[in-house]
């Protein structure tokens, strides 16, 4: 099994690691395949993702995916961010080994959950 240079680079120097004090939304996902966990915090301003941070208990692919996913989503509108899929994250990483395809799903799904969390809070505030 071999990782792409891009995966190794993001694994070695992961971007956006951490959490935020006042996030607009938080999403956390545990993988049914391996038990690994990714958590993503986002801040949203004017319907755009201003910042995204992640933490992962997982393999190299999961860490690289968290890094790549949070990079890709910064500055995107909510709709654009919702269109970000695990395939797109894996593609941006130069592909993942077959047994590791589920790992990029952790980041993409945690992001979607963070956005849902943000949207639920918006609805609650408006009500």
């Amino acid at each position: 099994m071999e990782y792409s240079a891009k995966v190794i680079e993001h694994f070695t120097n992961p971007r956006n690691v951490g959490e935020m004090d006042n996030p607009s939304g938080v999403g956390e996902v545990g993988s049914p395949v391996c038990g690994d966990v990714t958590r993503i915090h986002i801040t949203v301003e004017n319907n755009r993702i201003k910042e995204a941070k992640f933490r992962t208990f997982g393999c190299g692919a999961a860490i690289a995916s968290g890094s790549m996913c949070t990079e890709m989503v910064k500055g995107k509108t909510i709709d654009e961010a919702l269109a970000l899929t695990d395939e797109l994250v894996a593609e941006a990483l130069g592909g993942l080994p077959a047994v590791k395809m589920h790992c990029s799903n952790l980041a993409a799904e945690a992001l979607h959950k963070a956005i849902e969390d943000y949207q639920a809070k918006q609805v609650a505030e408006e009500a």
Partner: peptide, 14 residues
């Protein structure tokens, strides 16, 4: 604890 083995192996390999 709190660390996944493959990530550890990969980091050591680097």
């Amino acid at each position: 604890h709190y660390i996944e083995g493959e990530a550890l192996l990969l980091a050591l390999d680097m």
